[in-house]
Structure formats: structure tokens, C-alpha cells
């Protein structure tokens, strides 16, 4: 007997996508992070659709990028197909591949076959499709922690382990009236009114799935140092800072062009800083007093 399928619609930063899998699949109960973003599907044009299935078509599979596995880090390998791409994923570098995502060339249709770590694979597949499908649409999926203060979102950027989340938590403790919007993967869009940051269903280890959005106050790159100091970056530095924290497969021209257009608009209209800092309260004070000074009255 055919198993009954269920489809849900989600709206993240104004882009709607769908997820489809068996009605009785226990994973539906384990996707709390998507609940705040669920929307009504009637008459909505989805930007992309993901369905779980047992078979995928990998004809014409050719290697594009095979990662060097790092123990403890998730891995993704990329192949081109006759029609579209194949992404093979694993939650850790030292375990076998357990998710196979086959996507159309424009990233609007995805089919995911999962052997293990189902929740990881579904989250990863949706994030991947979201980033690649919306890159040409003025949208960035960022690696950042976002704190809101005075109605503006402040994005803290940096490589894993530099203390983005730590810096957000220092604001929450030391900057009255601030709150966390997202701790790992917020969405940023560039519109006529400037850059805007949105919460998402993806927030790393911190369960913070808030469906709210704010104008961006500033981007702040966190750099570990034995002192606390902040300064504005020039245009090229700002571009490099945001680019290195935005997801996307730049080897695909439409994605590279989209990311460039969005990031170049953002850096010409939004302040970007570098914060040399210790993981201490003074860092939050030094940072907030500078970045808030520049957004007041704007």
C-alpha cells in the first residue's frame, strides 16, 4: 500500500518552502524548530520543495567537491548529475555518509534519501536548499549570532569557536533591553529600506527559533585578542567579512552573482566593524557603546 504523505509549508524571511514525508513519520514530532514558521499553503508559490523518499536518481554522477573529513565536524560532498546536483552528507567527519540529497539545477526541487541521523539530514538539506535557492533573490543565509537592541539587529560574525554566541550572551547580561534573535543561522535580506535580519528554524546548539525581523544595525566581526577595541572596516574588508560568513556554492554562477549583488549593496549602506576582544563584560560595553552610537537617530 502507498504510504500517506503529509506536506507542510514554512515561511522563513518571506521565502516559502515545503517539506513532505510520510504522515506517520515520527520525525514530524521532532521538528519543533519549524513550528513558529509554519504557514498556510493555500495558493502559495513555494520557492522550493523537499520530499523524503527511498529512491533517488543519480545518473551522470560526477565529482565536483569531495571534502577532507574532519573528526567532529559535519561533512558535505558535492556531485553534478545529468539533471542538477547530488549532496552527500554526514553529521561527523568520521562516520559514513547517511543522507543523499538530489536537487534540480535551480534548487527548487529536492529529494532526500536518509539512512541515519534523519533530523540532521532534513535540517541540513533544507538549509542547503534555502541558501542556494534564495541567493539570487537578494537573500543571505549567514553564520552569525544576532542580538536585538533598540529595534535593530546586530550580527556577530566569526569562525566557529571565536565566540559569536559568547559575545551575544555578554550583551544579554550587560546591555539592558537586549534579546537574542538567532544564535547560528539567521537570514539577511537587502531591500529598498536596507539590510534586514530574520530569525530562522536553524540556530545551532541554542534552541532560539524566533519568527521576527529587524533592520540591521551593524555587522561585527569577532576577533579574539588580549584587549577590547572596536573599529570600522573599509569597504573591501566589510565585503570579505560578510562574504566569508554567507553560505552558498560560488562555483555556480547564479549563486555567486546573487551573493555579490546582495553583499555589495549591504556593505555600501550598513556599518561593518571588527571587534578585537576578550570574552568579558567590557567587550560587550565597548562594542555596544560604539555600534549603538551610530544607529541612534537613524
Amino acid at each position: 500500500m502507498e504510504k500517506m504523505l503529509k506536506k507542510k509549508y514554512f515561511d522563513v524571511a518571506g521565502h516559502v518552502f515545503t517539506l513532505e514525508m510520510g504522515e506517520g513519520d515520527r520525525l514530524w514530532d521532532d521538528l519543533d524548530n519549524y513550528a513558529p514558521f509554519e504557514c498556510v499553503g493555500n495558493g502559495v508559490d513555494a520557492a522550493f520543495s523537499l520530499s523524503l523518499c527511498d529512491d533517488i536518481d543519480v545518473s551522470g554522477k560526477k565529482e565536483m567537491y569531495v571534502s577532507t573529513p574532519v573528526e567532529g565536524d559535519q561533512r558535505i560532498d558535492i556531485y553534478s548529475l545529468d539533471e542538477g546536483y547530488l549532496f552527500e552528507m554526514a553529521p561527523l567527519g568520521d562516520v559514513p555518509v547517511c543522507g543523499f540529497l538530489q536537487v534540480s539545477g535551480d534548487f527548487s526541487m529536492g529529494r532526500l534519501k536518509v539512512l541515519k541521523a534523519k533530523r540532521f539530514c532534513v535540517n541540513n538539506a533544507l538549509m542547503l536548499m534555502y541558501a542556494f535557492r534564495t541567493a539570487p533573490l537578494g537573500t543571505l543565509e549567514m553564520h552569525a549570532s544576532v542580538t536585538v537592541k533598540d529595534g535593530k539587529g546586530f550580527l556577530f560574525l566569526g569562525r566557529s569557536g571565536t565566540g559569536k554566541s559568547t559575545h551575544s550572551s555578554l550583551w544579554l547580561k550587560n546591555v539592558p533591553g537586549s534579546h537574542l534573535l538567532n544564535d547560528d543561522n539567521p537570514i539577511v535580506r537587502f531591500t529598498d529600506e536596507g539590510a534586514r535580519v530574520y530569525g530562522s528554524p536553524w540556530s545551532g546548539k541554542t534552541p532560539c527559533y524566533i519568527n521576527e525581523n529587524y533592520p540591521v544595525g551593524a555587522f561585527v566581526r569577532i576577533n579574539r585578542a588580549p584587549y577590547d577595541a572596536i573599529h570600522r572596516m573599509n569597504l573591501a574588508e566589510s565585503f570579505a567579512s560578510i562574504s566569508s560568513s554567507a553560505s552558498g556554492l560560488r562555483a555556480i554562477r547564479s549563486i555567486a552573482d546573487g551573493l555579490f549583488a546582495t553583499i555589495s549593496s549591504i556593505v555600501q549602506s550598513t556599518p561593518c566593524y571588527i571587534l578585537d576582544c576578550l570574552p568579558d563584560a567590557a567587550a560587550a560595553i565597548v562594542c555596544s557603546s560604539e555600534v549603538l552610537k551610530n544607529v541612534q537617530g537613524s
Binding site: M64, Y65, I78, S243, L249, R250, A251
Partner: peptide, 8 residues
């Protein structure tokens, strides 16, 4: 800007 697959 490095936009090739090796610059992933």
C-alpha cells in the same frame, strides 16, 4: 574573488 569549486 575566488569563486571556483576549490574556493568552496
Amino acid at each position: 574573488i575566488g569563486e571556483g569549486i576549490s574556493q568552496i
